[in-house]
Computed example of a mutant assay.
Amino acid sequence: MACQKFQILGAGSYGTVFLGRLSSSSSTDSQVFAVKSSKLESSRSLRVEGRILNQLRGCPYIVHCFGDDTSLEHEEVVYNLLLEYAPGGSLESLIKSRPGNIMEFEVSFYAYQLLKGIEEVHGWGFVHCDLKPANVLVFPCGCGVNRLKIADFGLSKPSGVNIFGGCHRGSLLYTSPESLVSEMHEAPKDIWAIGCIVVEMITGNPPDAFLNIAFKKPEIPEETPVRDGLPQCC
C-alpha cells in the first residue's frame, strides 16, 4: 500500500510522522493517512507497533493500522507504518488549548474511553508502558465531545515478560511508583498513567514530579470533582 507523503505532522525518538495519501490516487479528496516512518535499520520499534496494532484491530478506542510498506527515499530504505489520521490532534494539544477548562462530563467520558481501550490492550496480553496525553489521539465526532484512541505502541511489551533489562521505559511524569523504583512494567503501570491523565485533564497541569511519586504519597488536587455520569453519545 504505497503512500505519498506531503506534510510533516511531528517527529519523535522512533520516527517521523507525515500526512499522506495513496500514491495511486490523484484526487485531493482521497483518504489521508498518518504515515509513521523510520530508516529500515532503526525501525524495530515501529515494527513492534505494527504487529501489536494488527492484533488490536477493530477496537474503537485504539488507533487503526492500515498496513505497512517500504520506500526508497534519498537513497535510503525507509519503513512506513500507515495509520489512521486524527484530525483533532492529540489529547496533549487539547489540554493545552483548554487548560483547566475541560468540562467534568468530558473528563469522565474520556477516562471511560481510555479505560476501555487499555482493557482491550491488557486483554490481548500487552502492556502499553507509555500512556500519556501526547500518545492519545483525538477524533471529533460532532456531538460536543471527542472520540479518543490510544496510539504509539513502540514501547509496549507482552505481560509478564521482562524485555527491558532493568531499564525504565516510558515518560517519567506518568510512571507508577513500582515502575520507577522496581522496574515493574505491568498492567497497573497503564492504569496509574490514566489516573495521571485524568488529573491533568481536570487541572490543566501535569502530575507531580516523578521523584515525589517514588517517595511520597500522591495527593489528589482539592479542586478535583468526583461525580457520576457519562454523555450518551459516540
Rank of each mutant, 00 (worst) to 15 (best):
R47L: 07
V107K: 02
R57Y: 14
S26R: 12
E104L: 15
W124Q: 09
F164S: 10
A151I: 02
H64L: 00
I150H: 04
L40K: 09
G89Q: 06
F6K: 04
D228P: 08
K96D: 13
A34T: 07
C196S: 15
Y14C: 03
G89R: 01
Y174R: 02
Y79H: 11
V63G: 00
G166M: 06
S43A: 15
G117P: 02
S156P: 01
A187M: 11
Q113T: 04
L9D: 06
H64T: 04
K132H: 06
R44E: 12
G229E: 06
A151H: 05
L172F: 09
I62L: 03
Y112K: 07
V181C: 09
A209H: 15
L82G: 00
G195S: 06
W124M: 11
V63A: 09
G10R: 05
S37H: 03
F66H: 09
V121Q: 03
L81T: 05
P60A: 07
Y110F: 15
G12Q: 06
S43Q: 05
V77K: 11
Q4Y: 07
V161P: 00
D190H: 04
R47T: 11
K5A: 04
R169C: 07
I118H: 02
V226Y: 12
L22D: 11
K217R: 15
K116G: 05
C233Q: 10
L211F: 11
L115C: 15
A193E: 04
L173N: 05
I102F: 05
V198L: 10
Y174Q: 03
K216R: 15
C59T: 12
K157R: 14
G166N: 06
G165H: 08
L230K: 09
